[in-house]
C-alpha cells in the first residue's frame, strides 16, 4: 500500500515539475518576442516604409497597441512613442531607448495618437504635399 502511495506522489511531483519547466520556457519565449529593442527596430523600419509608399492626402490608421503595452510598462507616454522628425521615423519605448529610420519620400507627415476611446493604442498619420 505504501509503495502505491509513493508511486503516485512521485509521479505527481514529476508531472508538476515538468509543467513548471515548460511554463518557464514558454514565458521566456514570449518575453523575448516582445522586447522593447526588437519592437523599436521593427516598427521604426516598417513605419518608414509606410511613409515611403504614402502619397499626399492619404490618412493611415496605425495599430500600435503592442507598443503601448511596452511603453506603459516603461513609463513612456503614448504620445511620445512615435515621432516624425525631419525625414526620420522615431520609435521610443523606454527612457534610454529609441530607434530611428530614414525615409526618402519628400512629403509632410503628421502623426498623433487617436483620441477616440474605441481606438486606444492607435495612431493617425496624415500626409500632405511639402510646401
Amino acid at each position: 500500500m505504501n509503495r502505491k502511495g509513493e508511486f503516485l506522489v512521485e509521479n505527481i511531483v514529476f508531472i508538476v515539475l515538468n509543467i513548471l519547466y515548460l511554463v518557464i520556457l514558454i514565458l521566456f519565449l514570449l518575453k523575448q518576442g516582445s522586447g522593447a529593442i526588437i519592437l523599436e527596430d521593427a516598427y521604426s523600419k516598417n513605419i518608414a516604409l509606410l511613409i515611403d509608399s504614402a502619397k499626399p492626402t492619404m490618412t493611415i490608421h496605425l495599430n500600435l497597441q503592442d507598443l503601448k503595452t511596452v511603453s506603459d510598462k516603461n513609463g513612456i507616454s503614448f504620445s511620445d512613442v512615435l515621432k516624425i522628425n525631419g525625414n526620420y521615423a522615431i520609435i521610443k519605448l523606454s527612457e534610454k531607448g529609441g530607434m530611428k529610420y530614414h525615409f526618402f519620400n519628400y512629403i509632410n507627415v503628421t502623426a498623433y495618437p487617436d483620441k477616440d476611446p474605441k481606438y486606444e493604442g492607435f495612431y493617425i498619420m496624415t500626409f500632405s504635399k511639402m510646401k
Binding site: 523575448q32 518576442g33 522586447g35 526588437i38 527596430d41 521593427a42 518608414a48 516604409l49 515611403d52
Partner: peptide, 16 residues
C-alpha cells in the same frame, strides 16, 4: 532568431 537584424532594404529599394 531574435538576434538577427531586421533587414528591410530589399522592400525599400523596391518601393524606391
Amino acid at each position: 532568431f531574435y538576434g538577427e537584424n531586421y533587414d528591410v532594404r530589399s522592400q525599400e529599394a523596391e518601393i524606391l
